[in-house]
Simulated scan of single mutants.
Amino acid sequence: MDDKIKYLTQLDYAQKNKSNYYMEVLSSQLIELLEKDISLQDMFQQLHLQNEKIIMNLSIDLTADAVPLHSHSFYEIIFVLDGKVDYLIGSRSYVLQGGDVVIIPPDIPHQPLISESLSNPYKRYSLWIDTSYLEDVLKKYPDAGLALQESNANQKYLIRTHEHISRNLRTHFEAIYHESCELRPGWKLCIATETLNLVVQMGRIYHNNEALEHIGTNDSMMDNIFAYINTHLSEKITLDSVANYFHISKSKISHMFQQQIGISFYQYIIQIRLLSAKTAITQGLSLTEACHRYGFSEYSSFYRLFKKEYGISPKEYFSLQQQLKR
């Protein structure tokens, strides 16, 4: 637990007053989660942005183990400042570069695929937006959410556009970041205004056909394998069955997973199944149904793997979700 506290105090909020603000606001919830030994990569998912509807972070990664495969219950919008990195979203991978905007809808598994240390750090703004907050706004102004609708319906997660448009989008991220660091009077309203303006501008890019289609998208064997796994989660998936389906060797598949993701074929399947089951539990599916729907033959193995991954049992996770909703 001491290591987790140390990690939290080192989170990049840019200025100490912002760090103190969030630690004070979230302290009781964080301590409760820490005592349950919930894993760090899952911690902020549990908070559901209860206290702040919009949170901005500036993050920098250099190594492969920085961000594991994960999903969360809110929208995440990323602006890439520097670094060139492969990024897995759902069953598709992208090559991101500076100036790109990535829209990650709720419950979509995603991860930067950093197979080795980067010469240029992967540096980005990450904007987290509470789903219910956005839904309330878009009820009044439905056409403002075109970019979010496109990302959900058509799996258009990447916006790469012309340099002058990209610079315009960056100004909104910078304004949100500076407001969240300085905490001057009225900062929450400024953040809300800038965020909604950003969402509108992204929608106009789609409306005006200013997004560069397919650029930055990988069309690889790995993407096909990801898609195959995602559509067969309820079934038994083995290295043999996937190798036979795609007519490639088992060693080739194992090598691709280890090289591109840094984990084994079977580790990836376990992670994607656990993420899918966790999302289903959050949405109200029973523990037993979630277990069997996503390919776990026995509840005992589901229980063991879930607790190992998230530091909390499926039942405890379900209870925590109910508590947060209340």
Rank of each mutant, 00 (worst) to 15 (best):
Val80Glu: 01
Asp2Gly: 04
Ile78Ser: 07
Ile215Glu: 14
Ser117Asp: 11
Asn197Gln: 12
Glu174Arg: 06
Glu24Asp: 11
Leu69Asn: 12
Ile38Arg: 02
Val80Phe: 08
Tyr21Ala: 02
Leu47Gln: 05
Glu298Leu: 11
Gly145His: 07
His164Phe: 10
Ser300Met: 06
Glu135Asn: 08
Asp37Met: 01
Lys16Cys: 05
Asn120Met: 10
Phe79Lys: 01
Thr193Glu: 07
Pro68His: 11
Ser27Ile: 02
Leu138Lys: 03
Met43Leu: 15
Gln50Phe: 07
Met23Asn: 02
Glu182Asn: 08
Pro109Thr: 08
Glu116Asn: 05
Asp3Trp: 07
Lys4Arg: 07
Thr238Ser: 15
Gly262Cys: 01
Lys140Thr: 13
Tyr7Asn: 06
Tyr245Gln: 13
Lys278Phe: 08
His247Glu: 12
Asn244Thr: 10
Thr282Asn: 11
Gln97Ile: 01
Ile312Phe: 07
Leu8Ile: 09
Met56Gly: 00
Ala280Cys: 03
Asn168Tyr: 10
Val67Cys: 14
Leu58Ala: 09
Ser241Lys: 12
Ala227Val: 08
Tyr266Ala: 10
Tyr299Glu: 10
Asp130Ser: 11
Ile108Tyr: 05
Arg124Val: 00
Thr63Phe: 14
Asp136Gln: 08
Asn51Asp: 14
Asp223Ser: 00
Cys181Leu: 09
Gly90Tyr: 02
His178Trp: 11
Glu163Ser: 04
His162Phe: 12
Ser119Ala: 15
Ile60Glu: 15
Val242Arg: 00
Phe79Gly: 00
Thr282Phe: 03
Gln29Asp: 15
Met256Lys: 09
Ser28Phe: 04
Pro121Asp: 08
Glu235Gly: 01
Met1Glu: 06
Ser286Asp: 14
Met23Ile: 02
Pro314Asp: 15
Thr195His: 01
Ile38Lys: 03
Ser39Phe: 04
Gly203Leu: 05
Ala227Cys: 10
Gly83Trp: 00
Gly311Val: 06
Thr161Asp: 10
His172Trp: 12
Arg170Leu: 12
Tyr94Trp: 06
Leu81Glu: 10
Ile191Thr: 03
Thr171Met: 13
